[in-house]
Computed example of a mutant assay.
Amino acid sequence: MTMKVLLIDDEQAMLTALSQLLSRIEGVVIAGMVRSSAEAVAFAAQHVVDLAFIDIKIAEDSGLTLALELRHMNADLDIVFVTSHKEYALDAFDVYPLDYIVKPVSLKRLEETIARAARGRVGKLDSGKADTPKRLSVAGLGGLQISGEQGDSLKWMSRKSQELFAYLLLCRGNRASKVRIMEDIFDEREGKNSELYLNTALYQLRKTLSTHGMKEILVSDREQYQMSLEQIKVDFIEFEERLSGFHTIDENNEEAAIAVEKMYTGDLFEDKPYEWALAERERISDMYEEFAKRLAKWLLENNRIRQAVQISKGLVRRNELDEEANRLLMHGFAALKDRLALQLRYKQYEAVLKQELNIEPSAELVEWYSRL
């Protein structure tokens, strides 16, 4: 598959270096190289490109603003930020870039980015259409908040219609049988009335969706129900998709990793008593905690202590009995030379272990603490 690439950087040396590296990757065609936002917009108006490599700061212009303008001109355009400005990483992810690469750039790193872009292109070709504009946004991490295009919250006709929406959302576009829905959502005591309650909830859900012009996303067929997610932006699905790209954490993707960690604002449907969601809640929670520990450890090893401590504090709040999380936090306090905080954390961990499990900290942790 041929991929047409536009390079945008105000430094000619960087344009040349990127061009030389990308030209070594099979299928990549350098469609153009420009050194200003105005040139980039003019080029994009006359040429269709698949991928744009953009510096965050282009002379006096903002690469973030340019990316939004180019995306407006071509909704299918993939954006890759290539920059030495790490501090812009979190803002950059508001543009939903394909990647964020910190200079210096290596051939291997570019090959990974091009491969990811190619996979995305194949997916779009297979589906036969480009991405559908999102008309609903779902924040399911830390609660359940659904808003429309204008930011207005959906008004639910009943708690059960909202729960049915969440249930079908968790099916991720797959079908769910009527029998299974009734078993999971409606109390067994409702007996024969379960089907009536389900039909009522379906009617109410369709009414709510119709106020946003989305009644058609909910379909039924042969005693099964399905909700299309093409027009819905779902935070926990996006979180999991982004998380899957971090097989390792290094200096090239550390800012992207920090941005993904910040996406996890709480457990799935945290304030909702949805028993049918417990397994998925635990699975996503476990994924987050494993990733957050890897990230905190990497930050500690690379002298980004305060960020590591912040993440570790969150992990300890989630589970005070987790020794790995406590150890990471204590190592952070030790690196900051905050002996008082370190002693307090150790004593608190020791006390909660005794109170809840009637055990002592591991011999390894006791030995480490005694050496301080």
Rank of each mutant, 00 (worst) to 15 (best):
S23M: 06
S23H: 06
I25E: 10
G27V: 10
V29S: 02
I30K: 03
R35T: 12
S36W: 04
A38V: 05
A38M: 05
V41M: 09
V41H: 02
A42S: 07
A44R: 06
H47N: 12
F53W: 07
D55C: 04
D55S: 02
K57I: 11
S62F: 01
L64H: 09
L68H: 05
E69L: 07
M73H: 09
N74H: 13
L77T: 10
H85M: 07
K86D: 10
A92W: 09
F93K: 03
V95N: 14
Y96H: 15
P97C: 10
V102L: 15
P104L: 13
L107M: 08
E112Y: 10
I114D: 06
V122H: 13
G123D: 12
L125I: 14
L125W: 02
S127Q: 10
D131L: 14
T132R: 11
R135G: 08
A139P: 00
G142D: 10
Q145V: 05
Q145I: 00
I146D: 03
G148R: 02
E149P: 04
Q150C: 11
K155N: 05
S158G: 03
S158R: 04
R159F: 05
K160L: 14
S161G: 01
Y167K: 15
R172K: 09
N174D: 14
A176D: 08
E188S: 09
R189M: 11
K192D: 07
T200G: 14
T200W: 07
Y203C: 11
L205T: 04
T208L: 06
T208N: 06
H212V: 06
H212G: 00
G213F: 02
M214F: 02
M214G: 08
I217Q: 01
S220P: 04
R222F: 14
E230Y: 11
Q231S: 15
I232T: 01
K233W: 02
T248P: 01
N253E: 13
E254M: 01
E254R: 05
A259V: 15
Y264A: 11
D267E: 12
L268Q: 08
Y274R: 00
Y274F: 13
E280A: 14
R281K: 07
I284G: 06
D286N: 15
F291N: 03
K293D: 00
L300F: 04
N302L: 01
N303V: 08
I305C: 01
A308I: 07
G314F: 06
G314W: 07
L315Q: 08
R317A: 04
R318P: 06
N319D: 03
N319L: 13
E324M: 03
H331M: 12
A335W: 03
A341L: 09
L342G: 00
Y346M: 05
Q355S: 09
E356R: 14
L357R: 08
A363Y: 06
